[in-house]
Design a binder for these strands. Structure first.
Lengths: 234, 234
DNA sequence: GCAAAAGTGTTCACCGTACACCCATGG
DNA sequence: CCATGGGTGTACGGTGAACACTTTTGC
């Protein structure tokens, strides 16, 4: 099939890069998953997990594969971010990179190094291990901006959250992403009004204060709201 | 440089495709710029203008070049839409396509066929010339959705509009994009409140009704609002 | 004078925002 | 009993939405 492909110019390579944000509710800050490169270029430097797309896979599949290969992460819901194409972004030659981003719980996604990576770890966004490889610092900035914009207009989807969560946890997550404090009463009222929360009936156990209720997302109601184009803002 | 590139897999090709919307204020409807292909695959079919990225250009540059080569369009402000990578989207083999979109005035951007195109023309969105080549019908749908979403949260920028325009023209443009009627008084009040309109002092000439004022966009004020993250909705 | 589009205000309902106190639990 | 976080209501201001008439102009 591709043998018969008529194409006169040298082809650029296509890579995927993944910006996986981890909302560390314990430490109350956002982290990002990085891998330490073990091969040149930028051997020893930290970078976003990612790699070359293969011939028979889509970009999404490549991104999911690379995340597992390089950092041991599975079951991550990725969303396409942007495609980067500066001519000098890779010293090896012409490489176009399609970036994806995701938001997960770092505790449930223990990072572990694998192929081509000396190490894999979570880093707080204000404590990055030096300058990242390639243009990954720039990609990370674009992803942060996108995540902030996204969360402002749409409630964070069920894909991005634990099965069960308390409203305080959800609020802390929003605060981390937006980088600002929110009013507890207003936040709770707004979420309740959206009718996308299901009270699981469970409550926190063994906490030294009044136990919080656990909620889960009402996936059906949420998707219906998305279809209706219902607007939200936090 | 690219000779020394270590990469074991067959490389996919990279193309750009451009969804150029034309707001035809006279006919009160949205059009899209298409070209009729003159080479296989899909010879004779209509398609989005686009083509292969070359080695020493960025995707943006490639998109601008292809728009001029294939349809004679210049000075178009493009925004990246999405990157499509289904494995079967091109019968010639593996092709990843990065789509861009834009909104222009069709009168000021006369389409004319050129390289690889038998013809180039504007089509109303509900009168497309049959099924488009490749997955371009799908790309077009994604672009429509994006344009609607964009216009709902941000006022249409100065890049996308004539130098001078009346508020009715602007309203008709919004109505075309959103596919719904808007209230004249509410629309005008909202635009005025944003403080991004400059009254040019000019008025319509030779119209069989009260002459409308011409406005232009206050680019500086608009960018300032964007920086502030000021929210709008129409 | 008439057809055609421009321009202009008010009312209502809803929502975002600001703000403070009592409740339940473990230690 | 105290420290900790959970949970709740109200008042105000702003904005989106609905709604109709007068003005200007060319013919």
């Amino acid at each position: 099939m591709s043998q018969s492909f008529v194409y006169d110019y040298p082809r650029p390579a296509v890579t995927v890069d993944c910006v996986v944000f981890g909302a560390d509710l314990r430490e109350d800050r956002l982290k990002v998953l990085l891998i330490q490169r073990d091969i040149d270029p930028f051997s020893g430097k930290w970078a976003l997990p990612g790699g070359f797309m293969r011939e028979h896979e889509t970009l999404e599949v490549a991104a999911i594969r690379e995340l597992e290969e390089e950092a041991g992460l599975k079951d991550v819901f990725l969303e396409q971010l942007y495609t980067f194409s500066s001519t000098d972004r890779d010293p090896r030659g012409r490489v176009v990179s399609v970036a994806y981003y995701a938001l997960v719980e770092p505790e449930q996604h223990a990072a572990q190094a694998a192929t081509d990576a000396r190490d894999a770890a979570w880093f707080a966004l204000d404590e990055l291990p030096g300058e990242l490889a390639f243009d990954h610092g720039q990609i990370l900035e674009v992803a942060r901006e996108r995540l902030r914009g996204k969360v402002r207009y749409r409630p964070i989807g069920f894909e991005l959250l634990p099965e069960k969560f308390t409203l305080s946890e959800l609020q802390r997550l929003y605060e981390m992403i937006l980088g600002q404090k929110l009013d507890k009463r207003n936040f709770q009222r707004k979420l309740h009004r959206m009718n996308i929360l299901i009270d699981t009936g469970e409550v926190q156990q063994n906490v030294a204060h009044r136990a919080a209720r656990y909620y889960s997302f009402d996936e059906k109601a949420y998707k219906q709201l998305e279809r209706d184009g219902t607007e939200f803002s936090i």
